[in-house]
Design a protein around this nucleic acid. Structure first.
Lengths: 159, 159
DNA sequence: CTTATTGCAAATAATTTGCACCAGC
DNA sequence: GCTGGTGCAAATTATTTGCAATAAG
């Protein structure tokens, strides 16, 4: 979490114009610990700057996330995806083709659970992110590593 | 992943009617390793059973997931949520009120990465799921632990 | 026979897009 | 002044819902 002056510098370094809206949106994220939705940020910012538009909030959040100035809590957010396997296991997610592979690994199922504020943990899942073999090799530079939503193909099935 | 006869028994045990559609959908999940979307399953099943409807696929997947006969890859799927913090960290997700809390824990940042099929892992995130303190105590039996999408409130902010 | 489930069509909700105007540099 | 960013309204996409017809137990 950067201070506002640092955020402004960071925008400049990345070639992003520094606008009032971007600053307001970043400030809104700074002041909540909520992991807010676009709507929530929109309402929050609107209180101080009523002319902001929801579309701007969406666009800004995407832009900032692409430039790693903020994070997106759920990278696979666009489509609900299901899994026949109900055992505890973990996932490898290809950031390019969005293929998901299963990881069954006993060691990863034995983590020491963190403790925080009386939260009662009943399970956990780990999402490993990166590039699958196909996308490292076959993709001829047409990668989109920034967590966006570009491809629809899942690299086929079994193969 | 159950065999079809076991799936049928499991449905009966849970009081779910065993329908042709449910079996086809489950079979489709069995035969792919794709973590498919509802659309993908719809197309797959439609090939063998053209009269199936997309709404049925959505309903069936939700039903099976609620009864733990299948899993949902992304439990926080319904809304995109953002985070001002770009350091590696992990999340506690309350399955009831959908509040998300941050976990910064050095040990959790040092996992041994699994290896699989040439996949190149660049980062990972752990999502711990359970009930926050508020929801364990204050909620008077009105819990919805089955990964559904019920509440809209995020239990307020700082508090 | 009774209730749960299906399938259709219409509704809703989240997010994206096109485009004209405006602001940052 | 040039280019990227904003705001509006309309479009798109995923998902849900109401309801009558049908199948499961």
């Amino acid at each position: 979490m950067l201070t506002i002056p640092d955020f402004i510098d960071a925008c400049r370094e990345k070639g992003l114009n520094v606008t009032y809206q971007r600053i307001m949106i970043y400030k809104s994220l700074l002041r909540t610990n909520n992991h807010p939705t676009a709507e929530a940020i929109y309402h929050d910012v609107k209180a101080e700057y009523p002319s902001i538009s929801l579309a701007t909030v969406y666009k800004t959040l995407e832009t900032l996330a692409e430039h790693d100035l903020i994070g997106k809590v759920t990278p696979l957010h666009d489509l609900a995806r299901y899994d026949g396997d109900t055992q505890q296991h973990h996932h490898l997610v290809c950031l390019n083709c969005r293929k998901i592979m299963d990881i069954h690994d006993e060691q990863l199922n034995q983590l020491n659970l963190p403790r925080k504020n009386g939260f009662h943990i009943s399970s956990y899942r780990i999402q490993f992110e990166g590039l699958c073999d196909d996308c490292q090799h076959r993709s001829n530079g047409r990668l989109k590593t920034a967590g966006g939503k570009e491809q629809t193909t899942f690299c086929g099935k079994g193969a």
